[in-house]
């Protein structure tokens, strides 16, 4: 697709996203919000996994950090929701950096295990916080979790899904545009060079250590932002929302959409949430169908949905050109 066509397609989608939801009703809009929020998180994972070639089974842990960070800021420090969003992003980036440094030397399966450990350990630590005897034992709200207040613009309280949808949409648009910027920058090129071959990238002057660590920070930032929005969306923040399954779900979004594209991350989030909603009505055995869907996607959906569409368009164009010639 040419740049102008792509922009036109983007604007059409955006117009639909603004105009259609008022006609959808509360529950469907609620689901739409979830799609947008997960899309933001999965963009972050696309940077790390798709462009950086690093495996993370711990993305839900970073989202958890964002959700708890934002909630604590709002409850304990009386920070407004609007300030909590960028602050949660910053916290996510910091934690991403803190993970990126120690994990610098780890690759492939080793990195998968390390991030897996992080994702499983973080909820355990939060659940058992009082046993550590550090700080306030009720810091994370114990078994009840945390209840962040609803955001407001002046006297307009964001307490319906429709109002929150416009917030999510605005944040998602900014997140998408920013991700495209980041990935088309010099840094994005360096990251892809690193994925192709770390030693070769290094030989061409890419500062591989820095690129790697920052890719964790970018993933963490997006995850933090996603977590802050998710905290409000869920209403109550507890560790059960950030299980290993959520980490796998994020990977699923990235793989189904197409690991390398920002649009793929959004498409993947929409597809996975839709699948989740549909399955919930059909069966209580979600993990079986999740596993089967993910397995089929890994085995047969090369390049994901977006990659397949792109390949189809390219083939059509070739045929057009052949017929005209």
């Amino acid at each position: 697709m040419t740049a102008t066509r792509r922009n036109a397609a983007g604007l059409v989608v955006l117009a639909l996203a603004v105009l259609v939801p008022p006609a959808l009703g509360e529950y469907r809009t609620y689901v739409l919000c979830l799609m947008a929020i997960y899309a933001i998180g999965s963009i972050g994972l696309t940077v790390l996994v798709g462009h950086g070639g690093m495996i993370s089974l711990g993305h839900a842990g970073l989202v958890c950090v964002g959700a708890y960070g934002a909630s604590l800021l709002m409850i304990r420090a009386d920070v407004s929701f609007w300030l909590a969003l960028p602050l949660a992003t910053a916290i996510g980036m910091l934690v991403g950096l803190a993970l990126g440094y120690p994990f610098l030397k780890l690759d492939g399966p080793y990195l998968a295990i390390a991030t897996f450990g992080f994702a499983v350990a973080l909820p355990e630590v939060i659940n058992r916080w009082s046993a550590f005897g550090v700080g306030d034992p009720a810091l994370f709200g114990g078994a009840l979790g945390l209840n962040p207040p609803s955001p407001a613009i002046g006297s307009l309280i964001i307490n319906t899904s429709l109002r929150f949808w416009y917030v999510c949409l605005a944040v998602l648009v900014v997140a998408v545009l920013l991700a495209r910027r980041i990935l088309s920058s010099r840094w994005g090129q360096d990251l892809r060079a690193y994925r192709q071959s770390p030693p070769a990238a290094s030989a061409y002057g890419v500062r591989t250590r820095r690129v790697r660590v920052w890719s964790f920070a970018v993933a963490g930032g997006y995850a933090g932002l996603c977590g802050a929005l998710l905290a409000h969306h869920l209403g109550a923040v507890g560790t059960s929302s950030f299980s290993l399954t959520l980490s796998i779900t994020f990977l699923m979004m990235v793989v189904i959409g197409g690991v390398e594209s920002v649009a793929g991350a959004v498409v993947g989030a929409v597809a996975v949430v839709a699948l989740q909603e549909w399955l919930t009505g059909q069966t209580s055995n979600l993990q079986l169908w999740y596993g089967v869907a993910l397995l089929l996607a890994v085995m047969f959906l090369r390049g994901g949905v977006v990659g397949m569409v792109q390949a189809r368009l390219r083939r059509l164009r070739h045929r057009d050109e052949a017929e005209h010639a």
């Binding site: 089974l57 399966p109 055995n285 979600l286 596993g291 993910l294 397995l295 085995m299 090369r302």
Partner: peptide
């Protein structure tokens, strides 16, 4: 062996997918 491109990423994803699917199968 059915993976078209066998990379660390696809391998990890495949066994993680099997983790979910087998858990679901046992449940079923």
């Amino acid at each position: 062996s059915g993976l078209r491109r066998r990379t660390h990423l696809t391998e990890v994803m495949a066994t993680v997918a099997l983790f979910l699917a087998l858990n679901g199968l046992t449940l079923a």
